[in-house]
């Protein structure tokens, strides 16, 4: 699903956030990304979501070389990815339902389909009763779950989460992680950046640990190279 081929990323300031990263994450795999603050976890996720472009190397997403994707085509790549942030990026000017419906509206789904899918997504995160609420009236954990519902409402092939439990208590964190595990069970590839090592151990999913922009330990099971097109 994700293939990093000798990826380096240097930010304009001259700082090497990632250097010579090689990774393969199989389709349907769930994995964690760990490392100290500044190790390059967020940068790695941003490269997949095409928020940043690599300085060197190639990234293949489901066989597509992202270097060949022009800026205009980026939206169509992102529609296959669900992205979750520590700061959940909810819009406070509209109710929960409208927040979750955004990816579907962007992709031109029909009204009935939108209703069906939004309610299904809210049901999965256990907040169906909050569809008419304003996000601002919800607790931090609830807001995070709304963010997750928005990320999965269009059934993306890949789920990226950057410290999704960063400011939640241990119990809520575990709940959220279990939510990800459930999406993974139905076939979604999941990559989660987190430094909550205890929680990661509990989840039993493999972890990749970064140190100063390099892979320190790769716990991923070996996978034969996904077929590379283009």
């Amino acid at each position: 699903m994700i293939h990093f081929d000798n990826i380096s990323k240097r930010y304009p300031g001259g700082h090497d956030a990632l250097s010579r990263i090689n990774l393969r994450l199989a389709k349907g795999q769930m994995a964690f990304l760990t490392g100290h603050s500044g190790a390059g976890k967020s940068t790695l996720l941003k490269l997949i979501a095409m928020i940043e472009r690599p300085t060197r190397g190639q990234i293949f997403l489901d066989g597509v070389n992202l270097n060949n994707i022009s800026n205009r085509k980026i939206p169509y790549i992102r529609r296959n990815i669900g992205i979750i942030f520590q700061n959940h990026h909810l819009l406070y000017d509209r109710p929960v339902f409208d927040n979750v419906a955004m990816p579907l509206i962007i992709q031109g789904y029909r009204r009935q389909e939108i209703h069906k899918r939004v309610r299904a997504a809210l049901n999965q995160v256990g907040l169906l009763n909050k569809e008419k609420s304003d996000p601002i009236t919800l607790s931090g954990g609830e807001q995070q779950r709304i963010g997750i519902a928005r990320a999965i409402v269009h059934k993306p092939l890949l789920l990226l989460a950057d410290e999704p439990t960063g400011n939640l208590d241990p119990e809520l964190s575990r709940e959220i992680m279990q939510l990800f595990a459930r999406f993974n069970q139905v076939g979604t590839t999941v990559l989660i950046a987190s430094h909550d090592l205890d929680l990661i151990k509990q989840m039993g999913a493999p972890a990749i640990s970064l140190h100063n922009g390099q892979v320190e330990h790769n716990g991923l099971p070996y996978t034969a190279g996904t077929p590379v097109s283009r």
Binding site: P75, Y76, R78, I83, L91
Partner: peptide
């Protein structure tokens, strides 16, 4: 700005 940023993140085209 916030709304635009989120829209871009979830794959909204420029036209949208």
């Amino acid at each position: 700005c916030e709304e635009i940023e989120v829209s871009k993140l979830i794959g909204a085209s420029d036209a949208f």
